[in-house]
Measured scan of single mutants.
Amino acid sequence: MKVIFLKDVKGKGKKGEIKNVADGYANNFLFKQGLAIEATPANLKALE
Rank of each mutant, 00 (worst) to 15 (best):
V9K: 00
G16K: 01
V21S: 02
E48W: 09
L6P: 01
N20G: 06
G24R: 11
Q33A: 11
V3C: 03
M1I: 15
G16Q: 02
L44I: 14
L35F: 10
L35G: 01
L6R: 01
A36Q: 00
I18A: 03
I4T: 01
A36L: 02
A39Y: 11
G13I: 04
Y25V: 08
G34T: 02
K15D: 01
K12R: 12
Y25S: 04
K2I: 13
E38R: 10
A36T: 01
L44Y: 01
N27G: 07
K2Q: 11
V21A: 04
V21Q: 02
L47V: 10
V9D: 01
K19P: 00
G16T: 02
K45H: 13
F31M: 06
G24N: 14
F31H: 04
K7E: 12
A26H: 03
I18Q: 04
N28A: 09
G11W: 06
L44M: 10
V9P: 00
A26S: 03
N43S: 08
M1L: 13
E48L: 13
K45T: 10
E38L: 10
A42I: 09
V3R: 00
D23N: 14
F31P: 06
A22I: 08
L6S: 02
D8C: 06
L44D: 03
L47F: 14
K14I: 08
I18G: 00
N43P: 01
K15Q: 11
N43M: 08
K7C: 14
M1A: 05
M1C: 12
I37R: 05
N28G: 10
A36G: 05
L44P: 03
A46Q: 12
N28W: 07
T40W: 02
K7G: 06
A46M: 13
N28S: 10
K10Y: 13
A22T: 13
F5R: 00
A46E: 12
N20F: 15
K19Y: 07
E48H: 12
L30R: 00
E17N: 04
I18S: 03
G11M: 06
K15E: 07
G24P: 07
G13F: 13
K7T: 13
Y25G: 04
G11R: 05
M1E: 02
K19E: 04
L44S: 03
I37A: 06
F29D: 10
E38C: 08
G34P: 00
K14E: 07
A26T: 04
A39C: 08
K15R: 12
K15C: 11
V21T: 02
I4G: 01
